[in-house]
Nucleic acid binder design. Sequence first.
DNA 1: CTGAAAGCGCTTACAG
DNA 2: CTGAAAGCGCTTACAG
Lengths: 381, 381
Amino acid sequence: MTYIKLLSYRNLCGVIRAAAKGEIMSGPTLSDVANAAGVSYATADRVLNNRGNVAQKSINKVRAAVERLGYVRNVAAANLSRKRVYRLAFLIPTGTNAFFNRIRKHILETANHLSVENVTVEIIEVSAFSVDALRDCIEKLTGNDYDGVAIVGLQSDQLEQPLANLQAQGVAVIGLVSDLPRDYRRAYVGIDNNVAGRTAARLTGMSHAGRSGVIQTFAGALDARDHAERLRGFCEVMAADFPQLCVLDPILTKDDPSFLFQATRDALRSDAPLTAFYNVGAGNVGLIGAITAAAKDPAAQLPFTVVHELVAHSKQALLDGHIDVVIDQRADVEVNRAFANLRALVDGRSLPPMPSLMPTIYVRDNVPADLLNDKTEALPK
Amino acid sequence: MTYIKLLSYRNLCGVIRAAAKGEIMSGPTLSDVANAAGVSYATADRVLNNRGNVAQKSINKVRAAVERLGYVRNVAAANLSRKRVYRLAFLIPTGTNAFFNRIRKHILETANHLSVENVTVEIIEVSAFSVDALRDCIEKLTGNDYDGVAIVGLQSDQLEQPLANLQAQGVAVIGLVSDLPRDYRRAYVGIDNNVAGRTAARLTGMSHAGRSGVIQTFAGALDARDHAERLRGFCEVMAADFPQLCVLDPILTKDDPSFLFQATRDALRSDAPLTAFYNVGAGNVGLIGAITAAAKDPAAQLPFTVVHELVAHSKQALLDGHIDVVIDQRADVEVNRAFANLRALVDGRSLPPMPSLMPTIYVRDNVPADLLNDKTEALPK
DNA sequence: CTGAAAGCGCTTACAG
DNA sequence: CTGAAAGCGCTTACAG
């Protein structure tokens, strides 16, 4: 009912009711606060920004005035005055992974749009899945005078100290796509991978319509947190709700397209026919290549296939009917949100209310027409 | 390749490459422009804001200087100076529809957060599906001094003139959830309902795993554009890819829960057993009530059921396994975006790059835990 | 520890 | 048609 307080009803047009926010149009300013507190402008400013060198007595008076007047500082004016520049950095895995190509692309686009608002961004690439490299990089960041950084993280306590140091310098740190240790970042922008895996299981289960079946799973590596979580979610739901489906142990692929190609081809030829594939990792070019080859035989019964991340080749496979579902984390949405969070944090504002990120489920019929021409991962050989 | 231009590479840490945006940190200011053009500050301002009363010669000089220097005005400073207040309004259908309760709730939340930035919002309720009421309301809006309005629209040329008048006064108008006539609004925030319907069809088709079946559809009214589009999308995919499934003509429900309850109950008892339900409209409390009743018989074979909009009761039914899929438009995301668009438009900025809105697909396993306690539509009787 | 003053980039009367 | 000046709400030297 709290929102009722915000409303004042009035008649606008016939059947219509209008709710108007109260008259907060011009709140109190710093000078109002200073006056009320009986101190100077500068002193009021000092206590508000904790610049120190203020008598406790003055601090108290100002705090009281702020409280009483409900003062809230005008961030835009502050930034104007300070000639604020937001120096942001994104730490993302190096390489040609199609998903991170999308991330990169969106970062650059957004940065371009935001340059007008004095935000500056650097993309820093770290070799993937290496705690050592990531730690080194975070250490090198310290003292580099960033205002905020978004990091595609790893779970390792080796990262804790460097992250603590970074934050101690006043740098806002958030996890992106793959989280950092919880207590060492201010926010996480990414999907819940356990939920993603569970969703994959539900759809795969549905596709069997009560029949029995055998499912082959694939993963890059089980110590990659997102892969492990997806797989776990998948197995949980299968065990609970689809006992007639048998989930085989994952084939570990290191996300290598060539390896996936061969593994998939072999799986398709196995005697006991498989009814579904689920790859929690990357390297889908290989998996798709093998399925596409098999699809040339018109009599072939293709397994129900679920993969992650919508990129050029997975989209095409969806349209061709060679795979059935792509579970995607929207790179564009994530990047948007990372910027919004970082800016709010840097401004010292509270995080804007943001809808939780849901994995997007793509089937043949809802893939966006405008999918960028990703530089696709090439399938060697 | 355009983005390469934005980058300058430098070594940051070992394997790492950094891409830094150019030195746009402090672009030219209005006074730079005025100097370059050889006119006064005030004159430069006049031409930039088209305030008139400027010699053509001055206009030319200023335009040239702007071009040459790449001047772009600092919106924050302008707003500060002008003591800008954003007066926004949302026109949404009246009533207790659970989906619009969510919309309302998010509008209020966001407004609350944005009051600090001097945005003021009014929610205006119009009786649903009535072109006349909507037209009247838009007319009454004119002259009310709004900066921007978001309207849950209808398709009717009766709306065109009022909308044109409104925009002629400098009011930014966008369509929300259901679009307005294309040329009479600046943007549309909502999902593609044809795609939503196609997606429903794909999932329903998948759930039959090649078996034949009979599908009962429900719609509020076929002259509601979103309903019609969903149904059309659904039928298109069914016809093309699932010829073994028979789609019955829709039962028209006026979104009335009681009616839906009875219609669903009857359908569940029909001689030829139905294998799936798809309701493109609202009133799901009724549909779910009937299914839940049927589910009491443990031998009952429930049809595969797809409905729209995740609200308290549809979420519960999903968790109970009484329905299978909910296709949702994220009210929170839509509201967020409506605000962002409106503010950009009011500021005369270009629309921020925004990811297209995808219908979110919920199954039992990915419903958010934190779903608000919607005031649920009550099922009378 | 405190205050008066200039300035951030713009807009808005006001006086020519 | 044009310009000088004050002011938006804040921060930052600078001088006590």
